[in-house]
Each structure stands twice: as structure tokens, then as C-alpha cells.
């Protein structure tokens, strides 16, 4: 079965208490563990121990973790990574609290990636026997789960190919310079199931190792608007939205955490499948790609990374 999903995003924050207020009080994640300068959090509709790790000191992304279905998948990914030319190391159970043994390596884009087969099962907050649709006492926006991350790369094609060859993902949409240069990926949205993206990559000078955003899933457009209203109440700086992208057709707001890491709330566009034709976007109509209605580029969205 291979890769199941983006399991966790581990990010740096300048002030842990301020970050906790944002991710717990405003976003509605639940803390499951606090150790030293780190806090581990999960969404109410996630069953594993954590999907977000906050570490005090700096800004940006420390690493992201992908969960595989079976322990044997690690051997398969290790072999495919070696063939691809990426050296992996084995990580031990306990390197990350409540996370199994697994693999660790640098993506060509210099991001640290971990792959693991098990996390301590905490369970759905609504339970899994005769559940109600959501927990009664959600905080703030009450995001159910981590959805995806967008990572920066100096050069997208190599890392994109890695996710295709080694993780078995497929590109759902790609941004290319123009239709005469369709082989060059300026950005790519990669899926391993039927979501429009589980991981996305965007290219530009000195983008390698950087984080564009981590995204949380919401149900629909109404939930996106309500999230925006809560952001206003809590004085969260907003970068873009509420709007709908034509790229992935996701409904969205982008905003910043108290350290300046960009977050997104995202409500799905369509069902992606492996045999669905990959949608292409050209740079000249990127404004249309980012916004269904106003179609203008925002000066910070494509330049600000952490």
C-alpha cells in the first residue's frame, strides 16, 4: 500500500506560548504531549498521536513525516530511494515521541523527510462507535486534520520525480512556464490517494529548505468563512482569501502563525484519481490559477516563505 498520508509537520516557532495560543485556541488542535521546547498536537478527526509539532527557536520547517501502511513498506521505499540516488538512514523508535522506527533522508530540495509505519493510536475524539459528527467543545476554528504542505525548491522537477518514483504519488496539477515547456515544473501538486494534493512543491531561487505553508482541512466554503471570522476576532494576519483557487479548486484562506509561518485552511475541490488527466497551468495565467474571481496576483503570496 505504501504511503498513506502526510503524517506530521514539525515546524519552528519563535515563542512557544504564543504558538500554542494560535494552534490550540485559534486553530483548535489538541495538545497530546509537551516535552522541553516542543509541543505535539493533533486534530480532532485524527487518530494518531500527533500531526503538528511546534519547536521553539527560529521559524520554518524542521521536517515532515509520511506514514506508510506496513513496516515492509520501509524496505521498499529505502530500495527505491537508493535507485533514485537519495541516501536514507534508519531512524529508531522513540527518535520522535510516540512514533515508530522508520527512514530519514534529505529531499533534493533539502527538506528533511521521515517515513514511519506507526504512531501511538490515540483515537478519534468522537470515538469510533456510534459517533456524533464533531466534538461538543471544539476550540476556535476546530480544524479536523492536517491536510498537506507546500514546500519551496530551487528546482522542482527532481523532487517531484522523487515523490512519483519513490513514494508512488502522481501529479494532479502542474504549473509550467508555458505550453511549449510542459516538461518544466514551476510548481506541482502531488497526490497519493484521491485528494488533490498531499504534498506540493513550488520553485524559485533560494526556496530550497523553506516552507510555504501547512494546510488544515475544513469541510466547505461556510467553514472557510467562519474560520476567517475567527481569525479576525483573534487578530491573525491574513495573507490571501477567503477565495477559491482554480488550481485544485480548493476554497482557502492563507494566514500566518505568531512566528510568521504561513498556514492555510483548505476545503476540497474535487476527487483526484491516478487516471485523471493532469491539469496544466501556464505562468501567464497564474492569477487565474490562484483565484477564481479576482485573478490578481498578491505580492506576498509568491515571495514570502519561512
Amino acid at each position: 500500500m505504501g504511503i498513506l498520508r502526510l503524517g506530521y509537520a514539525h515546524i519552528r516557532v519563535t515563542d512557544l506560548e504564543a504558538a500554542k495560543r494560535h494552534y490550540i485556541y485559534t486553530m483548535g488542535l489538541r495538545p497530546t504531549l509537551e516535552v522541553g521546547n516542543r509541543v505535539y498536537l493533533k486534530g480532532w478527526d485524527e487518530w494518531d498521536h500527533h500531526s503538528v509539532v511546534l519547536e521553539e527557536g527560529g521559524v520554518g520547517v524542521v521536517k515532515v513525516g509520511f506514514k506508510v501502511a506496513k513496516v515492509e513498506d520501509l524496505d521498499d521505499i529505502e530500495a527505491k530511494a537508493r535507485t533514485f540516488g537519495v541516501t536514507t538512514e534508519r531512524m529508531s523508535k522513540g527518535d520522535n515521541p510516540e512514533v515508530s522506527d522508520g527512514l530519514r533522508f534529505f529531499l533534493p530540495s533539502m527538506h528533511t523527510i521521515e517515513v514511519y509505519h506507526e504512531q501511538t493510536l490515540v483515537g478519534l475524539e468522537v470515538g469510533d462507535v456510534n459517533p456524533f459528527p464533531f466534538p461538543r467543545d471544539l476550540m476556535g476554528i476546530g480544524v479536523p486534520r492536517l491536510d498537506h504542505a507546500l514546500l519551496g525548491c530551487d528546482e522542482v522537477n527532481t523532487s517531484e520525480q522523487f515523490f512519483i518514483d519513490v513514494f508512488g504519488m502522481f501529479p494532479v496539477e502542474r504549473l509550467v512556464p508555458d505550453m511549449d515547456h510542459q516538461d518544466v515544473s514551476v510548481a506541482t501538486w502531488l497526490s497519493n490517494g484521491n485528494r488533490t494534493h498531499d504534498i506540493a512543491l513550488i520553485g524559485g531561487e533560494n526556496y530550497s529548505g523553506k516552507l510555504h505553508h501547512i494546510a488544515f482541512q475544513l469541510e466547505d466554503w461556510n467553514a472557510i468563512l467562519r474560520a476567517g471570522q475567527i481569525m479576525a476576532i483573534d487578530d491573525v494576519p491574513v495573507d490571501l482569501g477567503p477565495t477559491q483557487h482554480n488550481i485544485t479548486r480548493g476554497k482557502t484562506i492563507y494566514y500566518f502563525d505568531p512566528a510568521g509561518n504561513r498556514n492555510e485552511v483548505f476545503a476540497d475541490g474535487y476527487v483526484a484519481q491516478r487516471d485523471r488527466p493532469c491539469v496544466l497551468w501556464s505562468l501567464d495565467l497564474l492569477g487565474r490559477g490562484l483565484s477564481t474571481v479576482d485573478r490578481n496576483l498578491n505580492e506576498t503570496f509568491l515571495t514570502v516563505f519561512s
Partner: peptide, 29 residues
């Protein structure tokens, strides 16, 4: 952009006087 000290876009020069930070600004920024 972020208004939280993470993106570094709002760099300005202090010609005179003194300011202090209301939150940590990372060395990488």
C-alpha cells in the same frame, strides 16, 4: 506580509532613536 517577524519584508532603518522588540525575531530572519 506576516506582521509577526517571520518573513522579514518590513525591514526599515532606524536613523535615530531607540526601538525594542515585542517578541523574538529569529537570527535567520
Amino acid at each position: 506580509a506576516c506582521k509577526r517577524g517571520g518573513c522579514g519584508l518590513c525591514r526599515v532603518h532606524v536613523d535615530s532613536g531607540v526601538t525594542e522588540y515585542n517578541s523574538t525575531v529569529a537570527e535567520t530572519v
